[in-house]
Design a protein around this nucleic acid. Structure first.
Lengths: 248, 248
DNA sequence: AAAGATTTGTCCGTATGTATG
DNA sequence: ACATACATACGGACAAATCTT
């Protein structure tokens, strides 16, 4: 937690918010692991070059989000939280990937829609522009906590009604199997990061950190034909992506 | 750009900032590709449920960052900008990866330090805890624009003085070659996203979007021995990571 | 060529939120 | 809890630049 870099008063972000972010980051970096506590308010105030009231606002926000617990007369304790590691590779499966790290995982259907394919989706699925596609919006959870929000696209011709299958099986792998897809592989994955929109933040139940990791991926069947195009948002403070580049 | 989700007045983020972020995101999403322009201020003000002046503050910030160009009487034009795609795979090389997308690439040495290895680094490099390591801080540029800020760790025993080699060759691959490493492969990559610290933001010359993609990677030589542990920060609005999972 | 509509730029003043002591 | 200073957000009015009719 560097003291040289002070608060930026013209950034459009309130000082208490900037301090809250930096304390949150310092916790992530494990800077207070030895004591398990955040330094006292007066000390932090001096460190950031602000008034104690401002630090108090920051702490109040972090406590509200469940990152801290304030004990009068004692100090401010850090509540533990860990990032789940989500492996992305040639064989990427949601429930298997988090297996062992989370007690139970689930995929919920949010919406299903049939539309003509637009540019990027049509290209990725090797469809004629205007061909019908099925779009599934899903929310993935680990132990009841939302970890990813996704939109999946399939060719309507081959996968009409896949929404119902997903709603029954709660697994994309099994839904695809119902259409004769015995196996599939991840062809490409592109990763970006950005702030979540208000709607995305709402659906992922983000409280403090509003950042999402966004992956755009294409899956193909065993014969190499693209079958699935997905845009997935991961809550950045709950998930780390591990990119697997195995074998020779 | 969803209108239902309005501005959050208690988030500690100024309304103009929230609007600037959402316009920036809408541009990224290509929502205004047909006209190449942002809707007029009055329209945006109504859309977000704020005063035109608030929208103007947002636009002024975006124009300052070079995302927009405002033309009196005409409208607000979108300045083109593209994300470079950085491929991550079995063979990941900085200059090769951006080849074709950027005119020239460079790696600058920022600092070199020799220290005893701590937990994660020692484990990754298969060193005894306390064994000496060399840490190199570097800044990578494409066409003069910073794209990534990294800390690289090497075993001191095998790579003492690698800093000088890097400073001469401006290439990690060539610096490693000077120590007899003819080839190396990427073993693992872990990706997270977070807000940049003030120092990181300064070094990467971030203006608008303060988000960074953070990768933690391990490289091994042709015999499978880990030789390099790297923590790299990419400016999220300049770079997309692409995971390649080729072949069978 | 002239008039009108549209859009950005600038001025005023006022109320509220933020940060400090 | 109180008082002060500053940034933020709002509302209205008008000017200047550009395009259309």
């Amino acid at each position: 937690m560097n003291g040289e870099f002070l608060i930026d008063r013209r950034s459009g972000v309130a000082a208490w918010k900037q301090i809250a972010d930096r304390i949150s980051r310092a916790i992530d970096a494990g800077e207070f692991d030895d004591t398990g506590m955040v330094p006292p308010e007066t000390q932090l105030a001096e460190h950031f070059g602000v008034n104690r009231h401002t630090v108090r606002s920051a702490m109040a926000a972090l406590a509200e989000d469940g990152l801290l617990r304030r004990v009068p007369g004692k100090g401010t304790l850090i509540e533990k939280r860990e990032r789940l590691v989500y492996p992305v590779g040639r064989r990427t499966r949601f429930s298997e990937g988090l297996g062992g790290q989370a007690g139970e995982t689930d995929i919920r259907m949010l919406a299903e829609e049939e539309r003509p394919a637009s540019g990027a989706v049509a290209t990725a699925l090797a469809l004629a522009s205007g061909a019908m596609i099925v779009r599934l919006d899903t929310l993935s959870l680990a132990d009841g906590v939302p970890v990813s929000l996704a939109a999946h696209y399939f060719a309507h011709e081959r996968f009409a009604g896949i929404g119902k299958k997903l709603a029954t099986y709660h697994s994309i792998t099994r839904a695809l199997a119902a259409f004769g897809v015995d196996d599939y592989v991840r062809v490409s994955t592109e990763v970006t990061a950005r702030m979540a929109s208000a709607e995305e933040s709402d659906r992922l139940a983000l409280n403090g950190n509003q950042i999402v990791l966004e992956t755009v991926a294409v899956n193909a069947d065993s014969e190499g034909r693209p079958i699935q195009y997905s845009r997935t948002l991961f809550a950045a403070d709950r998930i780390a992506l591990r990119l697997d580049t195995p074998g020779k």
